[in-house]
Amino acid sequence: MREALFIKRNRNRWRQIQDNPSDHPDEMAQEFIQLVEDLGYSRTFYPVSKTTLYLNGMAAKKYLAIYQNKKESGNRVIHFFRRALPLIIAKHHRVLLISFCLFVLFVAIGFFSAKNDEAFVRRILGDEYVDMTLQNIKDGHPFGVYGYGNAFLSFLFIFINNVKVSLYEFGGGILFGYLTVISLVQNSVMVGAFEYLFYNNGLLQDSLLTIMIHGALELSTFVIAAASGLVLAKSWLFPGTVSRIHALKQGAKEGLIIALSNIPMLFIAAFFEAFLTRHADLPLWLKLCIITLSLAIVVGYFIVYPIRLRRKLNAVHF
């Protein structure tokens, strides 16, 4: 058989294994057996071709996936956070980048819209909230809103509400991403208008240093949640070489996993907002440490680590 015909006959199956690998043990084993058979044929008839190198790498990854799955079956939680989740995130890094760019764009739109229209902040945040904040600024407690109420009850309310928002943005992806994008736009514009309110009163730096105690994590979850919904929408709109239903199932699974990865950060962000942000007089060094560590966790786990892990796996040869 000519190499071109060999590739044509098996190309779709290889792409399916590469882009949508199964995580079921029996199916993983079957995929590995098929790859080994294809690799043996390719080595026999096309020993120095790119096809053989490609199948060699594919088989190596599948072998490592099976071995790792058996090795870590006793501790699935660690395996999930060390390998499964980072690889899913790496697979959808472009979607995450799009979500981040939309967030930054609409924060800027919210900020400059407020700058050019005095009534914009009140339309976005509401008269009651704006009047309360302005009164707090006048009284010398610009961030007093974070000090109201019982800290523990505030923590529970914030955490539950933000989890609902995260899951809503994921679920919105089923309507071609429309609800996901609308939610991201609304939250982003609100952040921009909110920051302009403090900027207009000469408190932008104080605002960032105080609110980013919890905001570094919370705002990151906005981006990640929106990315989870866009992953679902992408699978529905652009199924690629597989059937639309199969792509939708895979997109729903991976999007939900990304959305649920927000929960630990939402928990910590809610704790920070309820128990720390209310103390606007925290030392500057402590604020900077919390913000820097939070950003390092987000960038490290959701950007740097997935890239390094994927490169490491791609570099392995069978």
Rank of each mutant, 00 (worst) to 15 (best):
83 R>K: 04
152 F>W: 15
127 D>S: 13
265 M>V: 10
241 T>Q: 10
261 S>T: 11
201 N>H: 15
38 D>N: 10
166 S>L: 09
167 L>H: 04
298 V>E: 02
297 I>Y: 06
125 L>A: 05
299 V>K: 00
157 F>Y: 13
123 R>Q: 12
35 L>F: 05
169 E>W: 08
230 L>T: 07
111 F>S: 00
88 I>N: 05
99 S>M: 07
274 A>G: 07
249 K>E: 12
310 R>E: 15
287 K>I: 02
115 K>W: 02
110 G>I: 12
149 G>R: 00
305 Y>K: 12
138 K>D: 07
83 R>S: 07
222 F>W: 14
222 F>V: 09
65 A>N: 03
93 H>P: 00
235 S>H: 11
167 L>M: 14
225 A>W: 06
42 S>H: 05
255 G>C: 08
18 Q>V: 05
180 T>V: 06
170 F>D: 04
44 T>M: 14
22 S>Y: 06
61 K>N: 08
57 G>N: 14
137 I>E: 03
68 Q>M: 10
174 I>N: 04
72 E>G: 00
242 V>S: 03
231 V>A: 09
171 G>Q: 01
252 A>M: 15
307 I>W: 14
8 K>A: 15
44 T>F: 12
172 G>M: 03
281 D>N: 14
251 G>R: 07
124 I>R: 05
249 K>H: 13
232 L>Y: 12
110 G>N: 08
300 G>F: 11
254 E>R: 13
308 R>D: 01
60 A>Q: 05
96 L>G: 11
222 F>K: 01
164 K>N: 10
228 S>C: 09
115 K>L: 10
318 F>T: 02
86 P>W: 02
118 E>Y: 02
38 D>R: 06
16 Q>K: 13
150 N>C: 02
279 H>A: 00
171 G>E: 01
227 A>C: 13
62 K>E: 02
215 G>M: 06
297 I>L: 15
174 I>D: 05
41 Y>Q: 11
137 I>M: 11
138 K>N: 09
225 A>E: 05
182 I>Q: 04
71 K>E: 10
280 A>G: 09
76 R>L: 14
162 N>S: 06
271 F>D: 03
207 S>E: 15
12 N>G: 00
16 Q>G: 00
278 R>V: 09
6 F>D: 01
249 K>Y: 07
112 F>Q: 01
206 D>A: 12
273 E>D: 13
270 A>S: 15
316 V>T: 09
129 Y>A: 13
73 S>G: 00
162 N>D: 11
210 T>A: 02
36 V>L: 13
305 Y>M: 05
267 F>R: 02
270 A>P: 04
165 V>D: 04
84 A>T: 12
38 D>T: 03
230 L>H: 06
80 F>H: 11
298 V>M: 09
297 I>S: 07
191 V>A: 14
299 V>M: 11
77 V>I: 15
317 H>G: 01
290 I>N: 04
91 K>F: 00
81 F>Q: 06
265 M>N: 08
45 F>V: 12
310 R>Y: 08
221 T>Q: 03
302 F>W: 11
191 V>M: 14
59 A>E: 02
294 S>I: 07
223 V>G: 01
44 T>C: 12
56 N>F: 08
315 A>G: 07
96 L>Q: 10
283 P>N: 05
53 L>T: 12
228 S>F: 06
129 Y>D: 05
140 G>H: 05
162 N>G: 04
